[in-house]
Design a protein around this nucleic acid. Structure first.
Length: 273
DNA sequence: CCAGTATCCTGCAGGC
DNA sequence: TGCCTGCAGGATACTG
């Protein structure tokens, strides 16, 4: 359940509930993920360390510890974190368990294994190839100024550009569809065929959509440590994603669904041009 | 360099 | 009821 707003929601929950906790031990199985999971190495790096304030870059979650280095996490398509007491049943596809000194556990669950959990030593962001290549943060103040040049330099469909993490970090299939609908831009429109002023409008829509989603996710922060720890995803009211065939909330025409950039895309042929 | 497709993996919904 | 197919919130290694 992880695009930028979901990862940010998890980050905020961990900031409240994990910061200051000390690691007793890390255990798990050596399993193939986006990069091989190495629980032994993670245990060596994390044992006895105390978690500091978590950070986010795009859809990546960084959990720094005292005395340097951090645990780098990506939730992929199906990843989730559970912060829970040790007596709670362990869900299937739990690949990593971080035992904390206070008796709780941070668990990394990811059925499809498109996610990532690696140790990031000294060197920070530059030390990791995928982190180093990330583009601009949509919530960064410079986003609105930068997006027009990025989009207008390319002829690929604007939706493909929004999904390219090296251009913009954190947008996924849901919020790309929602933002383009809000801005009234056809997802298939080539980047270079959109006026500068319309790209600026799009930047504003992206920010607004993401901020509203984060605000909605934030309402479930309390539940994070509980058994029902799903962070916020279904609290967001989506306008178009998942609503193909239903009336457009703006004009009432049926929403269409087409494959753009290899991903299913819901949009309104009347409102988006 | 750029754009588009195939691929990794499991779970689940829908068709028959 | 069960079996099969296709699709799912992502990233990247390929191809042309």
């Amino acid at each position: 359940m992880p695009e930028l707003p979901e990862v940010e929601t998890v980050r905020r929950a961990l900031a409240v509930n994990l910061t200051g906790s000390r690691v007793l031990a890390v255990r798990g199985r050596e399993v193939s993920m986006r990069r091989p999971l190495e629980p032994g190495r993670l245990n060596e790096a994390l044992q006895g360390k105390r978690f500091a304030e978590p950070e986010r870059r795009g859809k990546f979650l960084l959990l720094p510890v005292d005395r340097g280095g951090c645990l780098l996490l990506h939730l992929g398509m199906s990843g989730r974190l559970r912060l829970t007491g040790p007596d709670r049943p362990v869900e299937t596809h739990t690949h990593l368990v971080i035992e904390l000194e206070d008796g709780r556990e941070l668990r990394f669950v990811d059925p499809r294994r498109f996610g990532l959990a690696v140790w990031l030593g000294a060197g920070g962001e530059e030390a990791d190839p995928s982190l180093a290549r990330l583009g601009v943060e949509p919530l960064d103040p410079v986003f609105g100024e930068r997006l027009p040049a990025l989009v207008r330099a390319r002829r690929a469909p604007v939706k493909a550009l929004l999904l390219d993490q090296t251009l913009v970090a954190g947008i996924g299939n849901i919020y790309a569809a929602e933002s383009l609908w809000e801005a009234g831009i056809r997802p298939s429109r080539p980047g270079r065929a959109i006026s500068e002023s319309r790209v600026r409008l799009l930047a504003g829509s992206i920010r607004s959509v993401l901020e509203r989603a984060i605000a909605a996710g934030g309402t479930t922060l309390r539940d994070f440590a509980g058994p029902n720890g799903d962070a916020g995803y279904f609290a967001v009211r989506l306008q178009v994603y998942g609503h193909a065939g239903r009336p457009c909330p703006r004009c009432g025409q049926p929403l269409r669904e087409d494959a753009i950039a290899g991903r299913s895309t819901v949009w309104c042929a009347n409102c988006q041009r």
